[in-house]
Design a protein around this nucleic acid. Sequence first.
DNA 1: CCTACCGATCGGTAGG
DNA 2: CCTACCGATCGGTAGG
Lengths: 225, 225
Amino acid sequence: MCLVSTSNGTRRRPGRFPRARRTTPRRTRYHHGDLRDALLKAAVELVEELGPDGFTLREAARKVGVTHTAPYRHFADRDALLVAVAEEGFQGLHAAALARLAGLTEPRQRLQALGIAYVEYAVAHPSHFRVMHGGVADACSDPAFVQAKAATFGLLIEIVGACEAAGLIPAGSVPRYALSAWATVHGLADLLMSGAAHRMGLADGSVEAIAREVTANVISGLRTP
Amino acid sequence: MCLVSTSNGTRRRPGRFPRARRTTPRRTRYHHGDLRDALLKAAVELVEELGPDGFTLREAARKVGVTHTAPYRHFADRDALLVAVAEEGFQGLHAAALARLAGLTEPRQRLQALGIAYVEYAVAHPSHFRVMHGGVADACSDPAFVQAKAATFGLLIEIVGACEAAGLIPAGSVPRYALSAWATVHGLADLLMSGAAHRMGLADGSVEAIAREVTANVISGLRTP
DNA sequence: CCTACCGATCGGTAGG
DNA sequence: CCTACCGATCGGTAGG
């Protein structure tokens, strides 16, 4: 039988593992916003170790060195903390995309740059990425979250729209191509994050190089203008 | 705040929800293999409702109508049941792919058919698909599981290899194109399963039609022979 | 931000 | 396949 329960840390459930004792020294006091930030950071680390479902408020508190009820001063409940992570994630992804797009005007180059930014962000911030696309974010209507998400998605539509305007894709096919482009980088991100691509011997080179190659294949499917 | 804890069923943690009482009448007795199959089926349903991490052995037992220790007669532990689901999944995907490939000889058609089968299988069997790519399966060395997984992956390599032989892709680029093709359908599967594609207005039409369009975009990036 | 507590699970073992 | 149990969590509330 596969000894997954001990060889990976994806899950954490009552009564299966002894809980690690406090590793971080307890701070004497937290200033305004200090504990909030510390909890956010702890949450990101825990999601990376245990997955979004394995994350618990109590362990985040433990990690930061406060009582398990202290987080309720800053977050209404467990999901609120995860939503904050997701929001931070969309803002970070948006910023990373803008940085990669800076100075590029040619639609195909921009589409590729957006894709590379997407994959790079996911691999560099797997916890954020997973929470962004997890169940917590799905039903969320938090304004800041929704705004950050829409802005990022807007970049994709804008760039594919520019491809259409340039005659690189058939008129009216923006949704189809947007979905194709998104699916490709989204899947690549997942296959790289999970290690599946590597296990199958398909992930040689840097993340950027891999993303560049894979997105190039998508680009090459466009018309010549 | 986002009321995710009540609006979606992705998670299940101690003390958050009242547990539903037995809905299935308790069987008087199970024949050999009968309970095993019933537990497998229950596990699939539970993963669909709660995700792989939310699945518990106790709830599966409850759903089937036996004591929470009865499953240990058929599965060594919780992970063993999930591995069985993953194995069933890879066998199902492999069979679905073979069915779609039957009669097709042209490499591009075969690549597209494989991709469509992948996406259709994922959408039709989301629980299996999630478990197949989840943490439980990663570290698993169960022979039947490994074999079913390798057979499915082998189809991809074989078909992309045929594309190479036909001059549709540059010599030596099988890994790169295999990764591209896989990433695209893997990402599409995820975006369709999670509802993200639909929420963004990018998922009009049947799953087959969407998968056909998206894979067509990949195919169009190949050389003309 | 803390102490004390509650109700509800869970995975797993002992022993039949 | 069942009864009885154990140890370990968890999210959350009361009340300060």
